[in-house]
Write a protein that binds this DNA or RNA. Sequence first.
RNA 1: GCCGAAGUGGCGGAACUGGCAGACGCGCCGGACUCAAAAUCCGGUGCCUGAAAGGGCGUGUGGGUUCGAGUCCCACCUUCGGCACCA
Length: 798
Amino acid sequence: MDRYEAGTVEAKWQRVWEESRAFEVPNPEPGAPRSPRKNYVLEMLPYPSGSLHIGHVLVYTLGDVLARFYRRSGSEVLRPMGYDSFGLPAENAALKEGEHPRKIVERNIESIRGTMQRLGWAIDWSRELSTHEPEYYRWNQWLFLKFFEHDHAYRKAAVVNWCPNDQTVLANEQVKDGHCERCGAEVEARKLEQWFFRITAFAEALLDEMKELEWPERVLAMQRNWIGRSEGAEILFRVDELDLDLPVFTTRPDTLFGATFFVLAPEHPLVDRLAEQSPNGEELREYVRRAAARPAAERAAGTGKTGIFTGFFATNPVNEARIPIWVADYVLMEYGTGAIMAVPAHDERDREFAEQFDLPIKPVIEEGELIDSAQFSGMPHEEAAKAIVEWLGTRGRGRPAVSYRLRDWGWSRQRYWGCPIPVVYCDDCGIVAVPEAELPVLLPEIEDYKPKGIPPLAQAEDWVRVPCPQCGKEGRREVETMDTFVDSSWYFLRYCDPHNDGAAFDREITDYWMPIDHYTGGVDHSTVHLIYARYFMKVLNELGLVGAREPFKRFFGNGFVTQGGSKISKRSGTATTPDELVEIYGADATRLAILFIGPADQDMEWTESGVEGMQRFLRRLWRVVGEVAAGGEGRPSDPSGGDALARKAHRTIDRVTDDLGRRHQFNTPISAVMELVNDLVKAPSDPAARFAAETAVSLLQPWAPHITEELWETLGHERLWEEPWPVADPAMLEEDTFELVVQVNGKVRDRLLVPVDLPEDELVARAKESPRVQAHLDGGEIRQTIVVPRKLVNLVVG
RNA sequence: GCCGAAGUGGCGGAACUGGCAGACGCGCCGGACUCAAAAUCCGGUGCCUGAAAGGGCGUGUGGGUUCGAGUCCCACCUUCGGCACCA
């Protein structure tokens, strides 16, 4: 048998898989019942803004191991691939390289596809898609029209996050610590007209339906934080001078008797009216201007409160106390009602403000009970909260209320490289949807698409000017484009039915495959893509377009791969690319190495010594299998030899199947197979050697599909990728003997090999006979004897 | 401050429901092969003590439950991630 040459073996099998279309899966026949064997395995699609890096190798190898394992376990596996090719990442890459984004992404897609094929990922390439192609974004536009028609999408003026570097608006989810998630520039506040999706209308559903998800707790927790549900009450404060009621949201209605002043956010619509009627109106307006100019980051830091008294008073509904109304920028317009009752005795921020402006501080809770609170005094404060809201309710001054931190999703962008939004602005008709029949609205070619603050599409005058679809008068097209997260909020539905040119997808087909059974990707998308896609699914469900309400039944959040440590590369000193790794070590060794590092859901440091170790392991496997195949000619594979090696092989089947299939561990199965191979190397002429070799090869196939396919052939078989997953013989998992651990006072003193069927009293007798144990009993009296069947005997002496 | 995850050899990590701590790999040490090196193979490798047999200690810290704790409970420390003038 020849020496192991990874390159040759890998090229051979990749060609075979391609020619036999090994990983393509057909859609069900119309009317076919949903199969319990269907299994949709997906990883987040890549941005083709560059080439793949070691982190991608982790994600897609994870998915690949699962897909290959499920396929051999009898599942009908759908595992497609595509490219998130519109949007900022690609456009910025294009600007940097000075070429058109389409050219850049299409070149990158070519290169990425090549890398994916060289890594041997089992993908159904017949379903490949790119979001920048009209065949895809046409349906993006169609879905938008459905959202628009049913008032899930709307346009409004709002203070938004503006990235001065990328010259575009960012969603809240794309701002981290006041900086642009992509370029790191400090985000500014700007008031602009923008497109939004009403994701807040689904806040409760997004929270509630998490119950059905098999997701890591940390990701669910992040979504819970992001949605930020608070339970409390809405309470009305009377302003007599203006003859109106001001609502406030509070989570602490029990402190209502301690409210000593009232605060409005500077952006509150009432402030203008107050300024008109106030003697110090000019001062008030000046304060509002200054607050608006203050950098968002400084305002959020919360140090050094500023504010101004309006001259007006509000009446506290519980005790008729007249409290002064202030305007201060520590109150946020976006949360609750933009107005608060201030309780300085029981709220840190209110206290700081009160101390600074010398306002009264009135404690109303002592040791958990209300004081100075009329008929509620003496009540435990939690009980009082309910009682006060109830009391207010009977008088029409308050009711229980829930507030959320989640904001509506702003998704229009002032950039070129994105999906055009199919609406026309008409002076007479307002915002008019482009008729479905006219889709797609193609993205026009323009010379200069550099970001300048105004959308680049505005320059394409011929394209912009268009008759109003409703009245025929001249109108203007929307010149903003969609955020790339719109594209990725439903791509998994298109994979189900990717070539449908009459609809975004056929509901019967998506209902067959959806929801995704196993989704994999980075946890950095926890409060971005993962929440948007869940929202989309709920809207599509309510529009009757899909049956499911959750897209991802199970989500696996892979860890980050760092490549920062010492000795990265032998040549350039920079990180080794996946293509180079395949070239040097082979795809199989690379795949094994990235998964062997540790638990795949934790961050990990990539080191090349790991992949060298895997290469050694594969060479060992190659050699020993060759030896077994040659030496055991004519000797049948014997799975029931009754000896240690056969039992080890069965135990390995059991371990690998359980670790991968039930526990979703990707590293420990590799160890288990290594153990089996180590045993095989020590006993290559064992009667069960052939069976052990077959088992090791078969079990390793999801991780190292090429070498195992070759060795499977060496062992006289074919098409391992279609071979049913091995099943352990329960009888062979049973041992005749076991190692009895003997403890004295909980410390191990001896280990005895004993038959499994030995009765308990006999186990104790044997334990006591052991000279090592005798030495530690030291003639003392045995006060207690613990026997754990098949495990140990513990003798407790006094 | 609130929410979440995690602390185990020189390193990455195993140990699933309380029952042999350190599987597997990396690294290191010794040996074989070789003129030599690489590759490969064989053996060793938690710490302290001992010539050895053995003994003692050991899973972030301090307590507790238990015959028995890396695993359960209480209190704390540290690191990482999310949210945060959110009323």
